[in-house]
Structure formats: structure tokens, C-alpha cells
Design a protein around this nucleic acid. Structure first.
Length: 297
DNA sequence: GCGTCCAGGTCTACC
DNA sequence: GGTAGACCTGGACGC
């Protein structure tokens, strides 16, 4: 086993980021609430599969325990692991402007006090797109089940579990074969099409992380994918660090109802409520969904 | 155990 | 541009 260290920004809150939404429950992520540990089975670019155990180190940022590497971990592999964790925890993201925006807001002062607002993402755009697709038109429990079945298609880690399957792996299967494994219903065809378009070079989704791409352009590209409507595209944008789009789903409508004195609102009314938060509106909306959970002791 | 209803977003066809 | 109905799975419910 090798232990790596990773420095974090001063305003970074590890467990608040891990619990920022449900991604930590979806393999190849795992977590332990008691020990505040995030785990992940990660396939490196050389094909090796490692098991990462990520903890907060009170003294200096994060500790990453790496198991499963063949021989001594090479510098290049260690750098790749650090980069993956950095992306997952969005360590390069500056959320101080967001905190400044909500600091004196009567409803949202708790956000900065608790240091929340940073989201847990996947190390690849591919994984975030696939998982988001599996959240559409279904319950969270079903999303977890579909992701678990999907994860078994990735290369296996000797100690148990699998790395997230590559687009090449899914594209190599027929759409029917894929869906008999994942049981994603009509989403299975969208998933297969996405994998095929990535593999044949039609889509360069990993470039979508570039900061040169505006939120508007990114939203357009995600929505052009089959199965990604307003909600899914808004969700993907948040994971990629753009918060100027809402991702209104049933949970968001419930959250709005709560802050609107128990009265439901139309999607237009909901959009108007979050409009004053400008480029951060999507994140404020998500904070409303997570408010009870994040503020619980 | 079986049948029916329902929830969850997106797509397509139609107006 | 707006809307109705279909898509698919599995949980809840009634019989």
C-alpha cells in the first residue's frame, strides 16, 4: 500500500463535498459515514486498477491510500491518482464568490458557515454523463440499482468490485446485450448510442471540461445528446463547474414548495425565484434541495 | 401470487 | 411554442 498526500484549499470541507449529492453511493465510489472515508476503484491509463481510500488529514489536506498497484507506484501513476481525486473533489474550483453572494442572505447564510457548495464529481465527463442519464425519469433507488449493474461491466479489481466501464466496453456490446445487464429500460439505447459516438470519435466529451467552453455552449452540447433534457443537462453542468442553469426535477419542486409556504410553483415561477442568483442559480437551487441534510448535525 | 397503478424526465408527433 | 402520450422499471397496493 502507498499513501499519497493531497493539499486542499483553505475553505475545503471534505465530508460536505463527499455528501454534496448522491454520487458517493454510486460505484465505483463507496463511503463510510462512521470513519468519513471515501473509496473508489480507479482504472489508470496503463490499465492497472487500484483501490483508493481517501481520508481527511487534520494536519495537511487529504490522505489517499492506494492498494492494488503492481510493484512500487510510479510517479506518473501517483500524479494520475492525485489528478483524479482533485477532479472528483473539485479542488480547483473557487467557490468564494458564491459564498460571498449568499453570506448576508437571510435564507442562505448557513451555506458559507458550513462551508458547503463544492460538488462531488466523477474523474471523467463520461462517467458523469452516464450516471446522470441513469437519474432521469426514475427513483434514486432505481438509479443506484442500475449503476450497480452497470459497474459490473467494468474491469474487476482483484479485491472485489469493478472500475467504471469504459465507453469502449459498452460500445463493444450490442444495445440489447447491454440493456439485459443494466436493465435501464428505454435509457439503455441512449446509453449505448452515447458510448458508440464517443468511441467512433464523433463526440469529444472529455474536452467539455475546458473552461473555454461557456455554460451556454456546454448546455447546448449536453442537450443535443439523446436522453438529456433540461434537468439532465443542468445537472451535468453543475458537475462540470457551471452553475448558471437550473436542473429542476421533482425534488427541486418539493424544495421550492417548502420555501414558498407550502405552495407549489410552476417551473417559470421557480426559475424567476432563482434568477437573482445569476451565474450561481443552479447551485443555490441545489442547496435548497440539500438544505435539511446539510444542516443536520 | 397476480394484476393494476404510479412515479420519475425525455422524446416524438401533433396542433 | 405548447401539449399529449409513450417509453421502462420496480415499488406499493388491492384482491
Amino acid at each position: 500500500m502507498t499513501r499519497l498526500r493531497l493539499a486542499t484549499p483553505p475553505d475545503f470541507k471534505f465530508w460536505a463535498t463527499v455528501g454534496s449529492h448522491g454520487w458517493c453511493e454510486l460505484p465505483p465510489f463507496g463511503y463510510d459515514d462512521a470513519t468519513h472515508t471515501l473509496t473508489r476503484i480507479q482504472q489508470l491509463s496503463d490499465g492497472q486498477i487500484v483501490y483508493l481510500t481517501i481520508n481527511e488529514n487534520q494536519m495537511d489536506g487529504l490522505s489517499i491510500h492506494v492498494e492494488g498497484a503492481k510493484g512500487k507506484l510510479k510517479t506518473r501513476q501517483a500524479d494520475e491518482i492525485r489528478e483524479a481525486v482533485r477532479r472528483c473533489l473539485n479542488l480547483d474550483q473557487d467557490i468564494s464568490v458564491f459564498h460571498g453572494l449568499v453570506r448576508d442572505h437571510p435564507r442562505y447564510g448557513w451555506i458559507e458557515r458550513l462551508g458547503v457548495g463544492r460538488m462531488l464529481s466523477s474523474p471523467t465527463v463520461w462517467e458523469d454523463l452516464v450516471k446522470t442519464l441513469l437519474t432521469t425519469n426514475t427513483t434514486w433507488n432505481m438509479t443506484v440499482q442500475m449503476c450497480r449493474r452497470l459497474a459490473t461491466l467494468g474491469d474487476s479489481y482483484p479485491g472485489g468490485g469493478h472500475a467504471f466501464p469504459t465507453p469502449e466496453r459498452l460500445a463493444a456490446m450490442s444495445a440489447d446485450e447491454l440493456n439485459s445487464q443494466v436493465r435501464a429500460g428505454y435509457r439503455g439505447a441512449y446509453l449505448h448510442e452515447l458510448a458508440a459516438r464517443v468511441v467512433n470519435g464523433e463526440l469529444d466529451i472529455e474536452s467539455w471540461r475546458s473552461r473555454e467552453l461557456s455554460g451556454t455552449e456546454l448546455f447546448k452540447r449536453v442537450k443535443a445528446l439523446k436522453g438529456f433534457g433540461d434537468y439532465a443537462a443542468g445537472s451535468v453542468l453543475k458537475l462540470l463547474g457551471h452553475f448558471d442553469r437550473l436542473a429542476t426535477d421533482s425534488e427541486c419542486r418539493e424544495a421550492y414548495k417548502k420555501i414558498n409556504g407550502g405552495l407549489p410553483g410552476t417551473d417559470k415561477e421557480i426559475a424567476a425565484y432563482y434568477d437573482p442568483f445569476g451565474q450561481w442559480r443552479g447551485l443555490v437551487q441545489w442547496m435548497d434541495v440539500m438544505a435539511d441534510y446539510l444542516q443536520s448535525p
